[in-house]
Nucleic acid binder design. Structure first.
Lengths: 141, 141
DNA sequence: TATAGTGTGTATATACAGTATGAACACCAT
DNA sequence: ATGGTGTTCATACTGTATATACACACTATA
């Protein structure tokens, strides 16, 4: 038996490529567009524990935005436990509980779906009508 | 035959009562909470053409908010053709094309539902899973 | 083994847009 | 005149995005 120190040797991966698309015309803030999409990549399994994300500077340059905006996105992801941000080194994907990943995905959709249902009730639309739209929208893509 | 002038004699209804609930903790602006709910009442048929809405001052007092905020809500509804706002008199429900009301309701839900579908795809959830949630959420209420 | 250099993340001060406000104003009816 | 409407103006606050200067970690190399 030996003691395992916290030297994070398993966080020496190469920087990973990552598709992020931001819209300046959207009313959603840029930093949430970024964090939301990175969260999606992690929950979908395209980013794995220990993966090194692009530095806030590099990502900022690619997306033509400020460093502070990318930092804010990474900060949010760190607070939610998706990243480990290490000064001077970089930002790494944190370990995820695989059993909870499916639940997390469902929770994200449930939250926004709940609002749609509430608004539907306000307008007097029933399940059948909304479901019909959902079906069509899914088939379209 | 006689000429009918635009003196709006058909807009002399009594002030109508109207349930509006606002949340200060919500991230949705107060003025859109109001306009959204009034729009819902109109589209659902609970408010009809010519109905007199509470004055911006009265509504502001009831909701414990500023007159300017209620005005902004009414302004938005006027721009979208749901209200006729008359200085010195009051704010009235405008005539709605009944054939288009159903479509308007569906359009509102479709817009928000589209975002849910896009996010679902991003997370790799399929129609069956989202539909299951939709069903449950509808049954719950 | 120092240390300069280049990469990382961090903190401060600032600008701007959207939201909400009070108070003074203008219009309409009686 | 009076008391009800909606309207306008100047102001404050919050959230978003920014540039610039700072602090930390690695590493090449003298």
């Amino acid at each position: 038996m030996y003691i395992q120190y916290e030297h994070h040797e398993h966080y020496e991966h190469m920087e990973v490529s990552m598709k992020i698309i931001i819209s300046n015309s959207s009313n959603e803030p840029i930093y949430t567009q970024i964090s939301r999409q990175i969260k999606g990549h992690i929950l979908k399994g395209e980013l794995k524990e220990g993966d090194l994300l692009p530095s806030i500077r590099k990502l900022a340059k690619e997306l033509q935005i400020s460093v502070i905006t990318t930092k804010r996105a990474y900060d949010e992801l760190e607070k939610e436990g998706f990243l480990e941000v290490v000064q001077g080194k970089g930002s790494y994907v944190a370990g995820q509980n695989k059993e909870l990943m499916k639940e997390k995905k469902l929770k994200i959709i449930e939250d926004s779906l709940m609002k749609v249902v509430e608004e539907s009730r306000l307008l007097g639309l029933d399940y059948g009508e909304v479901n019909e739209m959902l079906k069509i929208l899914f088939e379209e893509g």
